[in-house]
């Protein structure tokens, strides 16, 4: 079982709550202070993406979050229940291209995935008929004593 499991209504207002919880559990799991901002932002991006997907396709379904900090890595899985499509199937390169004009067209939607790719230490996106799972992890030291 994950250290912490959370499911929340697909409403933008709850994304901040998710960020706060993730930051607290990451700190507790021994993630270095210098990385906490990155964890907070990357997980927030994944949750925002899931919330937007649910609002379009299944607003009554909750977004799920699993946090696991028991091992040497702090792992976060954000799951939605919107069947995967090509857009969610891969990560765009983080600022790899000099071409930024796409951002001024309709490419702004890709920004969230670009931010996740640039911030998470390790990212995997699994797109299945049941939904999309974004799995991210960061190094963690031994958990703080109880």
């Amino acid at each position: 079982m994950a250290t912490v499991e959370l499911s929340f209504s697909a409403l933008p207002v709850h994304v901040r709550t998710a960020r706060l919880i993730v930051t607290a559990v990451a700190r507790r799991s021994g993630v270095a202070e210098a990385l906490l901002d990155e964890v907070r932002l990357a997980v927030g991006e994944a949750c925002s993406r899931a919330v937007e997907a649910h609002r379009r396709h299944c607003p009554d379904e909750p977004v799920r979050l699993e946090l696991n900090g028991a091992g040497s890595r702090f792992e976060v899985v954000v799951s939605d229940t919107v069947p995967g499509d090509d857009a969610a199937g891969g990560l765009p390169p983080a600022a790899a291209s000099d071409e930024t004009d796409f951002l001024l067209d309709d490419g702004a939607a890709e920004l969230g995935l670009a931010v996740i790719a640039g911030l998470a230490d390790d990212v995997e996106i699994e797109s299945t008929p049941k939904g999309v799972q974004i799995r991210m992890s960061w190094p963690a030291q031994a958990a703080a004593p109880a």
Partner: peptide, 16 residues
Amino acid sequence: EFLDSTGLGVLVGGLK
């Protein structure tokens, strides 16, 4: 205190 891609998108939209 915090900025995510939604905020970036708004700034890009404003620039356009």
